[in-house]
Design a protein around this nucleic acid. Structure first.
Lengths: 164, 164
DNA sequence: GTTCTTGCAAACCCTTTGCACGTCT
DNA sequence: AGACGTGCAAAGGGTTTGCAAGAAC
């Protein structure tokens, strides 16, 4: 599932154009973050990336990681999610286009799904209010029908406090 | 748009049953929070409620506000959202059932919409993965077609850092 | 050489927690 | 009386910021 070199070069170019347009500088740190991020075929948090990079030999500060993740999100290379109550998670926008998330209320397991009908729906809803849809974020909270497969069940929780 | 007394009494009963079931106590503070919350026909944050109550003459601590909002969410009287990067917002679940949010990327204006097709869609998607849908959260990020009406435009921002 | 970026640690915001006191049962 | 809830302030976790040193232009 690793991305091939061509993809990374394309992302580098996209980032270069963005930085040039915004008059931001081409620093080694920014491109090193892009490099590592492109290797991750999954959701990750800023801190996970910080730890990962410093383990891989890329010495970099938390401040730079956060700031670069913000740049990468602003130029659409990354998508930022804010599931549950914890920290923000990021993922490559090109990883799996237009997918949404189905989350088990009991074990927290997350399934990524693609549903083409949602694109048409987001457009028609925005249209209804005189707007032009750019993107959407949908999470469906559900329960495993087969409770046996729900291994990480939480203690005696009720309806759940999890949120958008 | 204020809720009538009957609604509030129903909520009180719902809360009473929940507390009894869970062996939690019926305290004045908890019911005072419910009272105030029932007056608000909009989204609010924990801190807004804290300030509001202490302005209205209800002396109450932040800790109690947070803890009671959690109880009210757990018994489905409130729904908790986590839009953007800021703090969590709450609203009465009975206020406007099954609505989702259309958010202007430029001015942040939020439109609440109801789209019945989403219920069927959430169910069919969950079904596809052997799960039973409980609820969903959808935000559509869009742009005003008529930029004139977009009064609170942000400075030179790009694609946006806002998230789920 | 000037301006922007980095790194560090401290500050920040929202939320949770520890503890002593008060309240519910 | 005993257990639980409240209030306060302090701690906590994730993220941002101020400032001096360093890199980009």
């Amino acid at each position: 599932m690793k991305h091939v070199a061509a993809d990374v070069e394309q992302l580098r170019e996209q980032f270069r154009v963005f930085l040039r347009t915004k008059m931001y500088r081409n620093t080694q740190e920014r491109f090193r973050v892009l490099e590592r991020v492109a290797e991750l075929d999954r959701h990750f948090t800023a801190d996970e990336l910080y730890v990962y990079m410093n383990t891989c030999g890329d010495k970099i500060s938390r401040a730079t990681v956060y700031s670069t993740l913000d740049l990468l999100t602003r130029c659409n290379i990354l998508v930022k999610h804010r599931f549950q109550g914890d920290s923000a998670t990021y993922e490559l926008a090109a990883r799996k286009p237009n997918h949404d998330h189905l989350i088990c209320r009991d074990c927290g397991h997350m399934i990524e799904f693609q549903e083409s009908a949602l694109l048409a729906l987001q457009d028609s809803i925005a249209e209804r209010y005189g707007m032009r849809a750019l993107r959407h974020s949908l999470q469906i909270f559900a329960q495993c029908r087969d409770q046996e497969h729900c291994t990480h069940r939480r203690h005696g929780e009720d309806s759940t406090t999890s949120d958008d």
